[in-house]
Design a protein around this nucleic acid. Structure first.
Ligand SMILES: [Zn+2]
Ligand SMILES: [Zn+2]
Ligand SMILES: [Zn+2]
Ligand SMILES: [Zn+2]
Lengths: 106, 106
DNA sequence: GAAGTGTATGTTATAAGATAACAAATCGGC
DNA sequence: GCCGATTTGTTATCTTATAACATACACTTC
């Protein structure tokens, strides 16, 4: 969901709600690890796994919009290693995969 | 660089240039594989490697803004495999790493 | 308990990023 | 030269995000 879709939904319950309120709530949720930002869509999803500190692999279905979340240390560690080769110090990993989910690809 | 930074630069040379022109040019460059979109920054970088079809790993220095480009089939193949486990069919990989480059991390 | 001080929340306005829709020009084929 | 088709230009608008200011609240100090 985009921030403005969330805003529209919440406006039904509480009028006078403005963008900064939504963005502040989303920022707080993301800080807690309870939501993730989909960078490639400028959208947000609630975390589907244990809310521990983690960099997720987000698989986005371009057909139906569903998002699957995967945890994979191997990918993250390899990314850190690859970039480390040039002296880069990795702090945040953004990994998103676009395609079709099982239901849509069938 | 963002699309609007590009726009501002080009406006110096050619007045009356509008956003769609820049976006159309960027789309064409990306189709050719000569530029990449930095999804996590809503920005664009020219391709720094051979202009073959590839999904790059982009390492972004949050301190100086530099971007390093890496090709790594292992990461991409693993991403395809991980998501494949749920029947997902991967078509496009977005992999960006934020941190500090060698110069800035030192 | 009033006054001060700092944090959280609400509000307005605007900045930044991207595209839709239409207009004009260019280019072949005839 | 005329016609339809593609490309390029232009205007307007839409979407996404944040700056800046105002207000409310919580907690301390006197
Ligand atoms: Zn998660
Ligand atoms: Zn789907
Ligand atoms: Zn490249
Ligand atoms: Zn740097």
């Amino acid at each position: 969901m985009t921030a403005y879709e969330i805003l529209d939904q919440l406006k039904n319950e509480e009028a006078g709600l403005a963008p900064p309120t939504v963005y502040r709530a989303l920022t707080a949720l993301m800080d807690e690890g309870r939501a993730h930002r989909l960078e490639s869509l400028n959208a947000f999803v609630s975390c589907q796994c244990a809310h521990v500190d983690h960099a997720p692999v987000l698989a986005v279905c371009d057909d139906c919009g569903s998002v699957e979340e995967h945890a994979d240390e191997i990918v993250m560690d390899r990314l850190t290693a690859i970039t480390r080769a040039t002296g880069f110090h990795a702090r945040r990993h953004v990994v998103e995969v676009h395609g079709s989910c099982g239901a849509c690809a069938a």
